[in-house]
Simulated scan of single mutants.
Amino acid sequence: MSALIRPTPARPTPSEPGAARQKPDAAATAAPARAALVLAHSKAQILEQLRIPVAVISSTVFPTLALLFFVIPQESVTADPLASLTAIAQLALFGVMSSFLFNYGIGIAEERANPWSSYLRTLPVGPVPPTIARALPAMLFAFFALLPVLVIGALLTAAPEAFGDGGLSWWRVPLAVLVWLACGLPFLALGLFIGYLCTSKVAVAVTQVVFFPMAFAGGMMLPPAAFPYWLDVFSLILPSRAARDVSVFALSGEGLHAGSVLCLIVWTVLLGGLALWANRRDQGRHFR
């Protein structure tokens, strides 16, 4: 009888190796799970964009067409290496700004009216993975919009003469691409603010009304040197002018004002706060 009674094995104490294997580390599993969610949402966003190729092509080609139609015919600009670099930087930022502002301002407003997107927002995923997943495709398509601008600028303007013997280093080109994408962050936040605050029909009108005056006053269509004095002074407080000056400086090494970087940071924080407020406001109205 005593042979049938076996002693119960002792449970491992926290100091023993078995205790550490009883419960998986939550922090170790959370990061891969969140990365998988970001990749899944990003793939869905890219496929959704590719289902409407006209929108992708238009946003990608529009800055290049602006360069061909408005800059290349001006021999006084294309013959000057510095003026060519300035025009390329302005139109490159123009493409990034339009991609971020329209992708978020109109895209999020349309998703809010979509029952499937509303259902996704009720899932216990949190706002971070979907937001990052929307930012990655936007940056990807904005990057594709920058490539033809750089190629056309290198082939049809005197911009390459500014490098090498011209005094500038070639590392400024990849640096400028990164700076252009970073300078689009306040417009990304502005798009979020419009998308969460407006309906889909209103968002289209508001985005267009905000985009074109801000792009013009920021010096992306016309150099600030051609502005009247009052417009030049007024434009210095706009995020588009600050982003334009930083973008031009990244590529050409000139054109940066003393307060441009600070102005860009302040606008990014301010618009980011407004976007967060609009997101929470919309979340509270629909899911409480």
Rank of each mutant, 00 (worst) to 15 (best):
residue 98 S to H: 11
residue 128 V to T: 07
residue 108 I to F: 03
residue 120 L to Y: 05
residue 80 D to T: 09
residue 114 N to C: 09
residue 106 I to D: 07
residue 107 G to R: 02
residue 138 A to R: 06
residue 107 G to Q: 02
residue 102 F to E: 07
residue 129 P to D: 00
residue 93 L to I: 07
residue 112 R to A: 03
residue 79 A to D: 15
residue 106 I to H: 08
residue 85 L to F: 11
residue 102 F to C: 01
residue 113 A to L: 06
residue 100 F to G: 01
residue 117 S to A: 15
residue 124 P to H: 05
residue 88 I to M: 15
residue 125 V to F: 01
residue 112 R to N: 07
residue 131 T to V: 05
residue 80 D to P: 09
residue 113 A to T: 08
residue 130 P to I: 01
residue 80 D to V: 08
residue 140 L to P: 03
residue 90 Q to K: 13
residue 133 A to P: 02
residue 130 P to R: 03
residue 142 A to C: 07
residue 139 M to P: 00
residue 104 Y to S: 11
residue 96 V to G: 04
residue 85 L to G: 15
residue 104 Y to K: 04
residue 83 A to E: 15
residue 105 G to D: 01
residue 103 N to G: 15
residue 89 A to Q: 08
residue 125 V to I: 11
residue 89 A to K: 08
residue 126 G to V: 03
residue 118 S to F: 00
residue 136 L to T: 08
residue 90 Q to M: 13
residue 127 P to L: 11
residue 115 P to F: 05
residue 120 L to A: 04
residue 123 L to T: 00
residue 89 A to L: 10
residue 130 P to V: 01
residue 127 P to Q: 08
residue 108 I to G: 01
residue 112 R to F: 01
residue 113 A to R: 06
residue 130 P to T: 03
residue 111 E to P: 00
residue 128 V to H: 04
residue 109 A to K: 04
residue 117 S to Y: 10
residue 129 P to N: 01
residue 130 P to F: 03
residue 89 A to V: 04
residue 126 G to K: 04
residue 88 I to C: 09
residue 100 F to P: 00
residue 121 R to L: 11
residue 142 A to D: 10
residue 81 P to M: 14
residue 128 V to L: 14
residue 81 P to W: 14
residue 87 A to M: 12
residue 113 A to D: 13
residue 103 N to A: 14
residue 130 P to C: 05
residue 142 A to S: 14
residue 105 G to T: 00
residue 141 F to V: 07
residue 78 T to Y: 15
residue 113 A to V: 06
residue 101 L to S: 04
residue 95 G to K: 05
residue 93 L to H: 13
residue 123 L to H: 02
residue 114 N to A: 12
residue 96 V to E: 06
residue 84 S to R: 12
residue 106 I to T: 11
residue 91 L to D: 07
residue 113 A to G: 04
residue 85 L to N: 09
residue 83 A to K: 15
residue 137 P to F: 12
residue 86 T to W: 13
residue 131 T to W: 10
residue 78 T to R: 15
residue 119 Y to V: 02
residue 80 D to Y: 13
residue 107 G to E: 00
residue 99 S to H: 14
residue 126 G to F: 06
residue 105 G to N: 01
residue 114 N to S: 15
residue 138 A to E: 13
residue 102 F to D: 06
residue 98 S to G: 14
residue 106 I to M: 13
residue 118 S to D: 04
residue 93 L to E: 09
residue 139 M to Q: 11
residue 91 L to Q: 08
residue 86 T to M: 13
residue 113 A to I: 01
residue 113 A to N: 04
residue 111 E to K: 08
residue 88 I to K: 09
residue 95 G to V: 03
residue 132 I to G: 02
residue 117 S to G: 10
residue 116 W to P: 00
residue 118 S to P: 00
residue 101 L to E: 04
residue 125 V to M: 06
residue 125 V to W: 02
residue 109 A to E: 04
residue 97 M to T: 13
residue 117 S to I: 00
residue 97 M to P: 00
residue 88 I to V: 15
residue 106 I to K: 07
residue 89 A to M: 07
residue 104 Y to C: 06
residue 78 T to N: 15
residue 90 Q to T: 10
residue 95 G to A: 03
residue 108 I to Q: 03
residue 86 T to L: 12
residue 99 S to Y: 08
residue 126 G to N: 02
residue 125 V to H: 01
residue 105 G to H: 02
residue 135 A to H: 10
